[in-house]
């Protein structure tokens, strides 16, 4: 019995020691020295300089792109405004043409009826008023 207990203690102790060693080895206590040795590699400064150069180029490219995009947005706004003005003019001309067509058709349809001419006064018409002035060959 005593021997049996001793063996169990011995087994437990050896297991603890085994895991302690395992953990120590898995922690790679030697890797620190390996990293410090790689930092001293001669390609590192060149890579760092290259990275800085690329970052600077990126900033410049972004600046140019932003400027061009702002100019594009301004041109787009101008064009949209011009389109809106043209659309408004077109709508006005269309309305005037429709109005003129209506006035003309009223004038033709109701030529003998004086009251219609008064309702839709034309810019020029024959009247029966006494003449204020007369025209002749100039």
């Amino acid at each position: 019995m005593t021997n049996h207990v001793a063996r169990l203690y011995a087994l437990a102790t050896s297991l603890i020691v085994f895991f302690a060693v395992w953990l120590t080895i898995s922690a790679h206590p030697w890797s620190q020295s390996s990293a410090s040795s790689s930092a001293a590699s001669p390609t590192t400064p060149a890579l760092i300089a290259r990275e800085r150069q690329l970052r600077a180029e990126t900033r410049r490219v972004n600046l140019i792109v932003n400027r061009r995009f702002a100019a594009y947005r301004r041109a787009l706004a101008r064009r949209n405004h011009a389109n809106a003005v043209a659309r408004a003019q077109h709508a006005g001309q269309l309305a005037a043409a429709r109005n003129a067509a209506v006035v003309a058709s009223q004038r033709v349809a109701s030529a003998p009826v004086q009251s219609s001419s008064v309702a839709a006064p034309a810019p020029v018409r024959i009247v029966t008023l006494p003449a204020v002035a007369s025209t002749r060959t100039s």
């Binding site: 810019p123 020029v124 018409r125 024959i126 008023l129 006494p130 003449a131 002035a133 007369s134 025209t135």
Partner: peptide, 22 residues
């Protein structure tokens, strides 16, 4: 009211804006 001479006499044109010439 502006008188405009024709063959038979004259007609009168009513003008509210603009111009007229012969």
């Amino acid at each position: 009211a502006i008188a405009v001479p024709t063959c038979d006499g004259e007609i009168t044109i009513g003008l509210s804006q603009g111009g007229l010439a012969t």
